[in-house]
Measured scan of single mutants.
Amino acid sequence: IRCIGVSNRDFVEGMSGGTWVDVVLEHGGCVTVMAQDKPTVDIELVTTTVSNMAEVRSYCYEASISDMASDSRCPTQGEAYLDKQSDTQYVCKRTLVDRGWGNGCGLFGKGSLVTCAKFTCSKKMTGKSIQPENLEYRIMLSVHGSQHSGMIVNDTGYETDENRAKVEVTPNSPRAEATLGGFGSLGLDCEPRTGLDFSDLYYLTMNNKHWLVHKEWFHDIPLPWHAGADTGTPHWNNKEALVEFKDAHAKRQTVVVLGSQEGAVHTALAGALEAEMDGAKGKLFSGHLKCRLKMDKLRLKGVSYSLCTAAFTFTKVPAETLHGTVTVEVQYAGTDGPCKIPVQMAVDMQTLTPVGRLITANPVITESTENSKMMLELDPPFGDSYIVIGVGDKKITHHWHRSGSTIGKAFEATVRGAKRMAVLGDTAWDFGSVGGVFNSLGKGIHQIFGAAFKSLFGGMSWFSQILIGTLLVWLGLNTKNGSISLTCLALGGVMIFLSTAVSA
């Protein structure tokens, strides 16, 4: 259960009878995928790494000078000259100064003066180019299975845990398959586009800190620079940016070097996208990844198990997540596992009318040892309800109150669905055939309105939902006002479609 501690969480529900669903994975976010007769899966884009970055340009932001020398000439005696002028490691300046009897010249006039100092770069920052084909995306998957609280967001041991898996995709191999043991396998067909235009970005490294910066900004930095990788004795261009020549006297000129420019660069980098280094690879934390999940090989585990009949206890007080759902960790005293956990939410304890829904599909106890633990997640209705676990006299209950409203949740879900469709863009549509167009249209309606429909009408039977949709269509056909007619027709059509397409 990876997503319960992530604030940016998206719930995606598969269409009834569908074998695939489109998701948008982004750094700092987590996606929970639910479908009829399929286990619930949490998917998170953990890291995006980039390798084989080529150094484009380096800037010196802290330097020192040494070996200063000057040469001067009297008027009419030609130009002052130093051998160091031809050495690229030196920074030199030529000027004219007033000369006369007082400073060793027989004539009054302008004399030539040249001053040089050896330039040494102490600290530099480097910009590297990123090729999209060198990106690698690491995705962690977790099935809502027989897990306890100690396994949440624990990325170790996934090789031997059938509840978890790690997959890596690249532009050259965008397809992967996550093996989930008894739950089958989940196929991923990803489109490795981060949403960032790397043709316009460089990877900047300064003092063990890293950013993504725009090329134009990078090339306009007014500091000494050299092109390409460091060859040991780089040729620094624009050395004068960190060196200041003071007022010249008759035979000498003082040279000083400016202080470190790291603070000024940090100020200019305010708002830039931060990154990290992992050995020789860069780690990015921006952008998104679009994936199509193929769920035809994914299956529920323990459908044929019998119900657990022994007593359950709450190991922890049920807690609310950031998303309005409830996490419950229970301990089973029996030894008759594997068995299914009898769990439901009810409005009252007399009729036990089921409300809400299970995020953890078909929760089971897989071990036959005593005191096995299991964590599950529920989506309670707004208002008061009861969490009921167990059967008969051994069942345990917990009162729950959820604040908020169904309308607010439906609106929030619609906005999130619209954002998801905007990110998917043209990849969500198939114009290759008439059937493809209608299929894409259905998927689009489901992406945007599916979660809201589930919130508003999830407790009704599909037949009642179709009746309401048919009534809206009838009202649309018999209303003389054009805008009201079109609105009723659209709402009725969407409702009829979703009542037959969205899983219960």
Rank of each mutant, 00 (worst) to 15 (best):
residue 1 I to Q: 05
residue 2 R to F: 08
residue 2 R to S: 10
residue 9 R to G: 13
residue 9 R to S: 05
residue 11 F to E: 08
residue 13 E to Q: 07
residue 14 G to C: 05
residue 15 M to K: 05
residue 19 T to V: 03
residue 22 D to Q: 09
residue 22 D to R: 01
residue 23 V to G: 01
residue 25 L to W: 11
residue 27 H to K: 08
residue 28 G to W: 05
residue 30 C to H: 08
residue 33 V to N: 07
residue 34 M to P: 04
residue 37 D to K: 06
residue 39 P to G: 04
residue 42 D to L: 02
residue 43 I to T: 11
residue 46 V to A: 13
residue 47 T to K: 07
residue 48 T to E: 06
residue 49 T to S: 15
residue 50 V to T: 03
residue 51 S to K: 06
residue 53 M to W: 04
residue 55 E to G: 01
residue 57 R to W: 09
residue 58 S to G: 14
residue 60 C to N: 07
residue 61 Y to P: 00
residue 62 E to D: 15
residue 64 S to F: 13
residue 64 S to I: 04
residue 65 I to A: 02
residue 69 A to M: 10
residue 74 C to K: 09
residue 74 C to F: 05
residue 75 P to Q: 02
residue 76 T to S: 15
residue 77 Q to W: 10
residue 81 Y to N: 12
residue 82 L to D: 08
residue 84 K to R: 15
residue 86 S to P: 14
residue 88 T to V: 02
residue 90 Y to W: 12
residue 90 Y to D: 12
residue 92 C to D: 09
residue 93 K to P: 00
residue 98 D to T: 04
residue 101 W to S: 03
residue 102 G to H: 05
residue 104 G to W: 09
residue 112 S to A: 13
residue 113 L to K: 02
residue 115 T to W: 11
residue 116 C to Y: 13
residue 117 A to K: 08
residue 122 S to D: 08
residue 123 K to G: 04
residue 124 K to Q: 14
residue 127 G to W: 02
residue 127 G to E: 11
residue 128 K to Q: 14
residue 130 I to F: 12
residue 132 P to R: 00
residue 134 N to E: 07
residue 138 R to E: 07
residue 140 M to E: 15
residue 144 H to A: 04
residue 147 Q to T: 00
residue 149 S to Y: 01
residue 151 M to Y: 15
residue 152 I to F: 12
residue 154 N to T: 12
residue 156 T to V: 06
residue 158 Y to L: 15
residue 161 D to L: 15
residue 164 R to K: 15
residue 165 A to N: 01
residue 167 V to Y: 03
residue 170 T to H: 07
residue 174 P to W: 12
residue 174 P to E: 10
residue 175 R to S: 07
residue 175 R to L: 04
residue 178 A to K: 08
residue 182 G to A: 12
residue 183 F to L: 09
residue 185 S to I: 14
residue 187 G to Y: 14
residue 187 G to Q: 10
residue 188 L to V: 14
residue 194 T to E: 00
residue 194 T to S: 09
residue 196 L to H: 05
residue 198 F to K: 06
residue 201 L to R: 01
residue 203 Y to A: 14
residue 204 L to H: 07
residue 204 L to S: 03
residue 205 T to H: 15
residue 208 N to L: 10
residue 210 H to L: 04
residue 214 H to I: 06
residue 220 D to E: 12
residue 222 P to R: 02
residue 223 L to N: 10
residue 224 P to V: 05
residue 225 W to I: 05
residue 227 A to L: 07
residue 230 D to W: 13
residue 230 D to V: 14
residue 230 D to P: 13
residue 231 T to F: 04
residue 235 H to A: 00
residue 237 N to C: 02
residue 237 N to P: 00
residue 239 K to R: 15
residue 242 L to V: 07
residue 249 H to S: 12
residue 251 K to P: 01
residue 251 K to D: 03
residue 253 Q to S: 14
residue 255 V to T: 00
residue 256 V to M: 02
residue 259 G to V: 00
residue 259 G to W: 00
residue 265 V to G: 12
residue 267 T to Y: 06
residue 267 T to W: 05
residue 269 L to Q: 10
residue 270 A to F: 12
residue 272 A to V: 10
residue 274 E to Q: 13
residue 275 A to Q: 01
residue 277 M to W: 06
residue 277 M to G: 07
residue 278 D to C: 01
residue 281 K to T: 10
residue 281 K to V: 12
residue 282 G to V: 14
residue 287 G to I: 04
residue 288 H to C: 06
residue 296 D to P: 01
residue 298 L to R: 04
residue 298 L to A: 02
residue 300 L to P: 02
residue 301 K to S: 03
residue 304 S to G: 00
residue 308 C to A: 05
residue 309 T to S: 11
residue 312 F to N: 08
residue 315 T to V: 12
residue 315 T to I: 15
residue 315 T to C: 13
residue 315 T to D: 08
residue 316 K to Q: 08
residue 316 K to Y: 04
residue 320 E to I: 03
residue 324 G to W: 09
residue 325 T to L: 03
residue 327 T to I: 10
residue 329 E to N: 10
residue 332 Y to H: 12
residue 334 G to W: 03
residue 338 P to G: 03
residue 338 P to S: 09
residue 339 C to G: 08
residue 341 I to T: 11
residue 343 V to R: 00
residue 347 V to F: 11
residue 347 V to D: 10
residue 348 D to Y: 02
residue 350 Q to C: 00
residue 350 Q to R: 15
residue 352 L to F: 03
residue 353 T to N: 15
residue 356 G to S: 01
residue 359 I to C: 06
residue 360 T to G: 02
residue 364 V to E: 00
residue 364 V to C: 15
residue 366 T to N: 02
residue 373 K to H: 02
residue 374 M to P: 00
residue 374 M to F: 03
residue 376 L to Y: 02
residue 376 L to N: 05
residue 377 E to F: 05
residue 379 D to Q: 05
residue 380 P to M: 13
residue 383 G to C: 04
residue 383 G to V: 00
residue 387 I to K: 03
residue 388 V to M: 14
residue 388 V to R: 00
residue 389 I to V: 12
residue 390 G to T: 04
residue 392 G to V: 00
residue 392 G to W: 12
residue 393 D to V: 14
residue 396 I to R: 08
residue 396 I to S: 13
residue 397 T to V: 12
residue 398 H to E: 15
residue 400 W to P: 08
residue 401 H to S: 13
residue 403 S to K: 00
residue 406 T to S: 13
residue 406 T to Y: 03
residue 407 I to F: 10
residue 412 E to Q: 14
residue 413 A to M: 11
residue 413 A to V: 10
residue 414 T to S: 05
residue 414 T to D: 06
residue 415 V to F: 14
residue 415 V to W: 13
residue 419 K to Q: 14
residue 420 R to L: 05
residue 423 V to E: 02
residue 423 V to A: 13
residue 426 D to L: 00
residue 428 A to C: 02
residue 432 G to P: 01
residue 433 S to Y: 02
residue 434 V to W: 14
residue 440 S to C: 10
residue 440 S to H: 09
residue 440 S to T: 11
residue 443 K to E: 11
residue 444 G to Y: 07
residue 444 G to L: 11
residue 446 H to C: 04
residue 449 F to N: 10
residue 451 A to P: 13
residue 452 A to L: 04
residue 454 K to A: 06
residue 454 K to N: 07
residue 455 S to V: 14
residue 456 L to D: 10
residue 457 F to E: 11
residue 458 G to L: 02
residue 459 G to S: 09
residue 462 W to K: 10
residue 462 W to D: 10
residue 462 W to R: 14
residue 462 W to E: 02
residue 466 I to F: 15
residue 467 L to D: 04
residue 467 L to T: 10
residue 468 I to C: 12
residue 469 G to C: 14
residue 469 G to L: 00
residue 470 T to S: 06
residue 474 W to S: 02
residue 474 W to C: 11
residue 481 N to T: 07
residue 488 C to Q: 10
residue 491 L to T: 12
residue 493 G to W: 09
residue 496 I to A: 06
residue 496 I to M: 07
residue 497 F to I: 12
residue 498 L to S: 02
residue 501 A to V: 15
residue 504 A to K: 11
